[in-house]
Design a protein around this nucleic acid. Structure first.
Lengths: 248, 248
DNA sequence: ATCAGTTTTAACGCAATTTTTACGCGCCCC
DNA sequence: GGGGCGCGTAAAAATTGCGTTAAAACTGAT
């Protein structure tokens, strides 16, 4: 199979990936054939593959552009594999999957205790490798705070993941209903929400006609959130219709 | 709650360590010899071992007292192992390590994709099993950091690796439930955890409505941890929602 | 069987929240 | 000018949820 050396995008001719910028994998492996094999298998499954053929290069590459996962062969020419794990763990939290020809149990234990997340003995099946990569990435995704769902306007900040609301840099405490009312407005920020809609989403469909709830709770919110509750800048009234949250 | 006579006291006979306070492992395995072997190996390393010899029993046991980790043999007499994984994953986040005699690659892939975190093929070495258990528990503790997973705020220090809790520089003793409640809060430090979520993770999915458990145990924890239990600085109440552990 | 440590259950006073009620203001239209 | 009407504000009343304590039931070890 002809492959111009200067192209690192090797998967143009093979099964084209769906996500061109999927997770980035750093493959650390000194044997060229295995490297090429991995490059092809992983690339065709949508992973971006970065390669390194020595421990030193692995450390350099990983600090240049932090990978989402490391596939590490322990039998490297220069540095001991365990040392590579330790060095990476010193600053990196991405999962490390060790791939090794030697299957000695003591070695597995050392690698795992040094900070590796999995250990695969050659020869292994590609499907298994892919499955274990999925597991590792699943862990990593769960561990880090994935969705930053913070809304901010004009001194108001709503952090939905933490369920916290700040005005300026002071936290303000909201009761359950106050919070739900505010987040409902945030969800449709900039757009008008009718009384009916708000009541249905916050109090439930049984209270669609209790419009006075809205008045008293909007007053509560404005007192806690607006710098000058009498002249609302964020929680706006649309007379006869409903309310609207200002957005930048 | 009925309890068949034959389960009366299967594991009282051997008397492993005196203070068995470590993480609770659920061992699901139908062959008695392997079960005894695992019980001995794991028990002598400080793990509390709970056993189940069928899929149904495994699901029951795990929802009665949620384990910190599950060791699951796929070849069970009643339910398919994959189904057990799926059922557990429906509510549980604790790691699941599959241990199986059959090493077919497709089976590994299915198990891992169904939600298992690792897959070990028999026969395996105890040391490797122990190492993989450590890896899984390290993940569950939150940080992927190789270093100690210790959490600290405001005079409170929680060392999950050693299962020790300090206030100032004095260690405080926590009962199993108190400790589990605290570590669950630690795992989501800074974020609000709902009553449901806490009850599910600490008492199991059968107790999601027993919110009074939370009140009495939060009182216990505060008395042991807060300098001034009446004015909590670390264990915060989010009225109507749940609780939150202060971070930073 | 007994005992200490732990978990579950029950009860009660208090605090926070929600709901209800009341009143004042500006506006438009008769 | 007066009477609805929609809106904002305030405060009382009702409800719910929370913290606390103590006793009862349970568990595992001696």
């Amino acid at each position: 199979m002809f492959r111009p050396a200067k192209f690192h995008s090797t998967h143009n001719r093979e099964a084209p990936p769906k996500h061109v910028d999927g997770p980035q994998l750093l493959v650390v492996e000194d044997e060229p054939e295995i490297r090429r094999f991995l490059r092809a298998s992983l690339g065709s499954h949508g992973y971006r593959v970065v390669e390194a053929e020595s421990g030193a290069e692995a450390l350099r590459r990983s600090s240049e552009s932090p990978p989402d996962l490391v596939l590490l062969d322990l039998g490297l020419p220069d540095i001991d594999g365990l040392e590579v794990i330790r060095q990476m763990r010193a600053w990196m939290t991405a999962p490390i999957i060790v791939v090794s020809a030697r299957g000695r149990e003591a070695e597995k234990v050392c690698a795992l205790d040094a900070g590796a997340d999995d250990y695969l003995t050659k020869p292994f099946g590609v499907e298994e490798l892919l499955a274990r990569i999925r597991v590792a990435l699943r862990h990593a995704a769960g561990g880090t705070e994935a969705g930053e769902s913070v809304f901010a306007v004009d001194g108001l900040r709503v952090d939905q993941a933490r369920r916290q609301v700040f005005v300026g840099d002071k936290e303000v405490h909201l009761t359950p209903i106050e919070y739900r009312l505010l987040t409902t407005l945030v969800k449709h920020a900039g757009k008008v929400i009718t009384h009916r809609q708000l009541l249905k989403e916050v109090w439930g469909p049984g209270s669609v006609f209790e419009t006075h709830y809205l008045r008293v709770y909007m007053a509560h919110l404005r007192r806690k959130i607006e710098p000058e509750p009498a002249r609302p800048r964020v929680l706006l009234t649309e007379p006869g219709i409903g309310y609207r949250l200002a957005s930048d």
